[in-house]
Design a protein around this nucleic acid. Structure first.
Length: 399
DNA sequence: CGGATTTGACCAGCGC
DNA sequence: GCGCTGGTCAAATCCG
């Protein structure tokens, strides 16, 4: 199989490489541009060994698809958590807190970051995620140990995006999502029925969230179980796009995985829809017994804070973490911190809705040295970080 | 043997 | 209307 793909890729590589910009590439560019937004909010934490930086920028960012429900993330919430400790200051904690704030907003079902203007060039939310080097992936993946101590790859990077067509149209969103969910649960029907359904789907597509990840592995293990249902050659790309569907009954979440033609080391994983279940029903035999931050924070599912979930192999061993950057109705986050590890915090006013008050604790925490897992630090390639930070610095200088 | 993957065919949307 | 492309289906195949 791999040989086959390899062969196919080689063949396609021989063909003229089209200059048409691929979405992932665009996203990268957009992310860097948005990082210099004057409306950007910065967030950073640090540890002895890693820099935890976070910048957020956006305009009318609609996070409803991500934070509305405890399981709104396309992957187990805890995957971004600091597994090595009960670190309350991790990136996920921030999100968690955000979730709380979202929930308490006037419109819990559709929270918008109006405070973060951003160009809405498209309907995609972008996320940057970092991955460990191939070596790290290999060695750690083979090990079942939940270790995040492997040096992060300076070469590993990822950017992602998400589509928010439905989210942008709140009027149609509910109906659209319901229709699609119904379709997914109905599964198969007659062809005429399929046609009608497809039409409806087209009109109301669920929000998408894409993650650009630098990895040798195409199908990143995000903890959920996926079944591949299709593969298509991508125009102007030597690499095929794979289509996956969550195997959990009643869950219609889909994801597409494709490799960037511009940078073959970058894998773009696009999630569509929300899991209708808190965690994988059939864990792949991971060892971790973790506390679910999701459930800790208002999950409506029957669970307790001690709910045990499988450790996503990928995240546990590959440091798959959402760095992030959502453009156009998106939120951009960029790692950032001072060289001495001092937390750079522009203040809550610059980043309303995100529990920034949490961050300083993280930066001053004496446990920072041992809670390197689960944050963004290991993911972004140094160059990306530099580029992004530099871009913002330039922007700030202009002011 | 059951579940996952592969892969060709089919369909819808879109631009020309 | 036609061709191209993205997305999905489903039978065949693979694999543990």
């Amino acid at each position: 199989m791999e040989k086959k793909i390899e062969h196919q890729q080689k063949e396609q590589l021989n063909s003229t490489k089209n200059t048409e910009t691929k979405i992932d590439h665009q996203e990268i560019q957009i992310s860097q541009a948005s990082s210099s937004s004057s409306h950007m909010a910065n967030l950073a934490t640090s540890s002895d060994h890693h820099l935890h930086q976070l910048e957020l920028a956006g305009n009318n960012i609609n996070f409803s698809s991500i934070f509305d429900s405890p399981i709104s993330l396309p992957f187990p919430y805890s995957y971004f958590e600091d597994h090595s400790s009960n670190n309350p200051n991790s990136f996920l904690d921030l999100l968690r807190q955000d979730q709380h704030q979202f929930a308490s907003s006037s419109n819990p079902s559709s929270f918008s970051f109006d405070a973060f203007p951003v160009q809405n060039n498209n309907d995609t939310n972008l996320f940057f995620t970092d991955l460990p080097l191939p070596q790290a992936i290999t060695t750690k993946a083979e090990s079942s140990e939940v270790v995040n101590t492997a040096p992060t790859s300076p070469n590993s990077t990822s950017v992602s995006s998400s589509s928010n067509e439905a989210a942008n149209d709140n009027t149609n969103k509910e109906v659209a999502v319901k229709d699609q969910e119904g379709d997914q649960q109905e599964h198969k029907g007659t062809k005429p029925q399929l046609k009608a359904k497809k039409k409806n789907q087209k009109k109301a597509r669920e929000a998408r969230f894409a993650f650009l990840t630098k990895s040798d592995i195409d199908n990143l293990d995000d903890g959920y179980r996926w079944r591949k249902y299709g593969q298509k050659a991508v125009k102007n790309s030597p690499y095929p796009r794979s289509y996956y569907r969550c195997t959990t009954v009643g869950c219609g979440v889909k994801k597409r995985v494709e490799r960037s033609s511009d940078d073959p080391s970058i894998v773009m994983t696009t999630y569509e829809g929300q899991h209708s279940h808190p965690f994988p029903m059939t864990p792949r035999g991971h060892l971790g017994m973790l506390t679910s931050p999701i459930l800790d924070h208002g999950a409506t599912t029957a669970s307790s804070s001690s709910f045990s979930i499988p450790q996503p192999r990928y995240l546990l061993t590959q440091h798959h973490q959402p760095y992030n950057s959502m453009y156009n109705n998106s939120l951009s986050m960029i790692n950032r911190s001072s060289p001495d590890g001092t937390f750079i915090n522009p203040g809550p006013s610059s980043f309303p809705g995100f529990g920034y008050d949490h961050i300083p604790q993280a930066s001053t925490s004496t446990t920072s040295a041992i809670r390197d897992h689960g944050l963004l630090q290991d993911i972004l390639p140094s160059q990306i970080r530099e580029d992004t930070v530099n871009a913002q610095i330039v922007e700030e200088d202009k002011k």
